[in-house]
Computed example of a mutant assay.
Amino acid sequence: MKKIFVFFLVLFFFNACTVKNQNYHSQSVSIIINSPFLKMRDFGFLKRQNQILILEVYRMGQAFFNLKIKDKICLNIACYDKQIFNKKFFKNEYYDDILSDILNAKPLWQGKNLQKTTCGFKQNLKTENFEIFYEVCQNKVSFLDKISHIKIVLAYQG
């Protein structure tokens, strides 16, 4: 009886270790961010888990940059409302989920001025507050706001 109990206990622990979160995806990414708030050129991981998006960048084996987007945007340990983060990071009041859309390679402003290309799409968006060139081509995302001097380039690996 004791052997059967130990067998089931060991089986339970091995089974628990093999269960994976089906809503989890991790992807390596090369990232360039050039803004008045932050300058970075590194490699990291973009993780998607349920409704959470996490960008982690490492230096010498240590995570030094951790961006987490859910209902708020957290940069390392400081969390901001999305509008406040956008104003601080982008120097502009874009819509709340613009950073999520960029990291997920989705069209901005619900596809306004979207032009299909042979490898993806591009958008040119211009108002008095911003002049944005945005392009998604295969595994590369490029965002440039000429007025705010913001540049984000992501190259997804694999």
Rank of each mutant, 00 (worst) to 15 (best):
S26W: 01
S26G: 07
S26T: 06
S26Y: 02
S26C: 01
S26M: 06
Q27M: 08
S28K: 15
S28H: 09
S30E: 13
I31Y: 02
I31R: 04
I31A: 05
I32S: 10
I32H: 03
I32Y: 06
I33R: 08
I33E: 03
N34S: 13
N34V: 07
N34A: 10
S35M: 01
S35C: 02
S35V: 03
S35G: 02
S35H: 05
P36K: 15
P36W: 04
L38F: 14
L38W: 11
L38I: 11
L38M: 11
L38T: 08
K39T: 04
M40H: 03
M40L: 15
R41Q: 13
R41I: 03
R41W: 03
D42T: 04
D42G: 10
D42I: 01
F43Y: 14
F43G: 09
G44I: 02
G44W: 05
G44P: 14
F45D: 09
F45T: 10
F45S: 10
K47V: 08
K47H: 08
K47G: 00
R48T: 09
Q49E: 15
Q49W: 04
Q49T: 07
Q49K: 11
Q49F: 05
N50G: 00
N50S: 04
N50I: 01
Q51A: 13
I52H: 03
L53N: 01
L53T: 05
I54T: 15
I54C: 05
I54R: 05
I54E: 08
I54K: 02
E56T: 12
E56K: 15
V57K: 00
Y58S: 06
Y58N: 05
Y58D: 00
R59L: 08
R59E: 07
M60S: 14
M60Y: 12
M60F: 14
G61D: 05
G61M: 05
G61K: 01
Q62V: 13
Q62P: 00
F64Q: 04
F64M: 07
F64P: 03
F65N: 06
F65L: 14
N66Y: 14
N66M: 10
N66H: 13
L67V: 07
L67Y: 11
K68Y: 09
K68F: 06
I69L: 15
I69Y: 05
I69T: 02
I69C: 06
K70F: 09
D71T: 13
D71E: 15
I73P: 01
I73M: 09
L75E: 08
L75M: 13
L75G: 05
I77C: 03
I77Q: 12
A78V: 01
A78Y: 07
C79I: 06
Y80G: 02
Y80D: 02
D81T: 03
D81E: 12
D81F: 10
K82I: 14
I84Y: 08
I84F: 07
F85Y: 06
K87G: 09
